[in-house]
C-alpha cells in the first residue's frame, strides 16, 4: 500500500503555516529569516511530492533552483542584518523603524 498524496500535501501546508506563524510572532530578525527558509522548504516538499507522484523530474529541477535562490537570499539577508546591527545595535524588528517616518 502506498501513501496517499494528500498526506504529503497536508504536511507541507502545516509546515508552511508554522513558518508563517514564526514570521508573524517573532521579533528577532534572524528567526524571522529562518521561518522564511522553513516556508521555502515546505514549498519544496510539495514540488517533490508532485514530481515523484507524476514520475516527472521537472519538479526536482525547480527545487534545485529554489535551493540556489535560497542560498543567495540567505547570504544577502544576513549581510543586511549584519549591516543593520552595526548601525542600530539591535536585530529587534520593532526597533528597526527608520522607514516608518
Amino acid at each position: 500500500m502506498q501513501i496517499p498524496i494528500e498526506y504529503y500535501l497536508i504536511l507541507s501546508a502545516a509546515l508552511f503555516m508554522t513558518g508563517i506563524v514564526g514570521v508573524l510572532i517573532r521579533r528577532n530578525a534572524i528567526i524571522v529569516f529562518m521561518s522564511i527558509e522553513l516556508m521555502l522548504n515546505s514549498a519544496n516538499l510539495t514540488l517533490i511530492t508532485f514530481s515523484s507522484y507524476l514520475g516527472n523530474s521537472i519538479g526536482q529541477i525547480f527545487v534545485f533552483f529554489v535551493m540556489a535562490v535560497a542560498a543567495a537570499e540567505a547570504a544577502i539577508g544576513l549581510a543586511i542584518i549584519i549591516a543593520l546591527f552595526r548601525n542600530k545595535l539591535t536585530v529587534n524588528l520593532d526597533e528597526i523603524n527608520i522607514f516608518k517616518w
Binding site: 502506498q2 498524496i5 508532485f50 514530481s51 515523484s52 507522484y53 507524476l54 514520475g55 523530474s57 526536482q60
Partner: peptide, 12 residues
C-alpha cells in the same frame, strides 16, 4: 495521480 514506482525512481 497514482505513483508508478519505476517512473518515480527514474525521475529522482
Amino acid at each position: 495521480v497514482s505513483r508508478e514506482v519505476a517512473a518515480s525512481v527514474k525521475a529522482g
